[in-house]
Nucleic acid binder design. Structure first.
Lengths: 155, 155
DNA sequence: CATGATTGTTTTAAATTTGAACTATTTGAA
DNA sequence: TTCAAATAGTTCAAATTTAAAACAATCATG
């Protein structure tokens, strides 16, 4: 989308940045999704395994929030992972409404096996940017992601 | 997703950047989607209007490529916009397989009316970053988005 | 000028995602 | 204690998206 200098320099700059953000996300997402398919997992399944593998057991709700996914969805994802023998669900002692989701030994082995490969793949894809550029990009994206919502709502 | 220094500095850096990209996109997307709803349009409808408004009439296939959306989807989106009286479809003279999609006067008026508001909104949301930061972010995102795919496929 | 390959579009079926309604449990305030 | 409000999770229906099949038209190559 060319935004041909029609809305003033500030707006044109912001619009152009937003288009590039959407495109970069879309492309990078497709690239990583292709690799995840080769593991026999869907993106949400992989995401759940990744979160559990890195951060340890947690409730379904916590998984939702980490993955930015709705609850109805996570129920299905977790059930499928249980059927695949990759995670267990157990009721929480502290809160009997909640379930704790945890990797099984099989899930842990799979995670350890594929995530190294995935990490290398992401590093290669990101390798178009130097390490300094990746750091800089991360910093800017974090700032944008954490505060654009409240910024937009101001007066 | 904390990636706790387990995959070597290069991979950790890339993973961390990728997480921030996904989160920033998700958040910014939700923020703009909320505003688009207030115009009585869906995101794909708005996207099509925007592209047509800025770049002029084009075929359905061109719209797909600009919007990174599948063809089956764009057929539906365009049909709905026709029903709403915002665009017309006419057969192309040069290629009788193709349809040219074009804003109606009503579509043009709507576009001009809402897009200024939208542009200001995006500028405000992006205002967490300085103009220099937005330029820098745009440059890095463009580089990442245009070359990460081929980079990932190399040996 | 054939004809095989490609392209533009539509249709359909399947997958994914969300949001709302619902149950069960917990929390907090009176 | 008791009851209203909030929270965890599930289920279900609706919306969205894609991918594949199909068809028509065009292009390219010999």
């Amino acid at each position: 989308m060319k935004t041909t200098g029609q809305y003033g320099p500030k707006a044109d700059l912001a619009l152009s940045m937003w288009v590039k953000l959407a495109r970069a996300f879309s492309t990078f997402n497709k690239v990583t999704a292709e690799q995840i398919w080769t593991f026999g997992l869907t993106q949400p399944q992989f995401g759940a395994l990744e979160t559990l593998g890195h951060l340890g057991p947690m409730t379904i709700g916590e998984l939702c929030r980490k993955q930015l996914v709705s609850g109805g969805n996570m129920t299905v994802v977790v059930n499928n992972l249980v059927d695949m023998g990759l995670v267990t669900r157990s009721t929480s002692k502290e809160d009997r409404r909640a379930y704790i989701v945890k990797l099984t030994p099989k899930g842990k082995r799979l995670f350890q096996k594929i995530f190294v490969t995935h990490a290398e793949f992401v590093a290669k894809a990101a390798g178009v940017l130097t390490e300094d550029e990746q750091r800089e990009l991360g910093t800017l994206l974090k700032k944008l992601g954490t505060t654009c919502r409240s910024q937009a709502k101001q007066a």
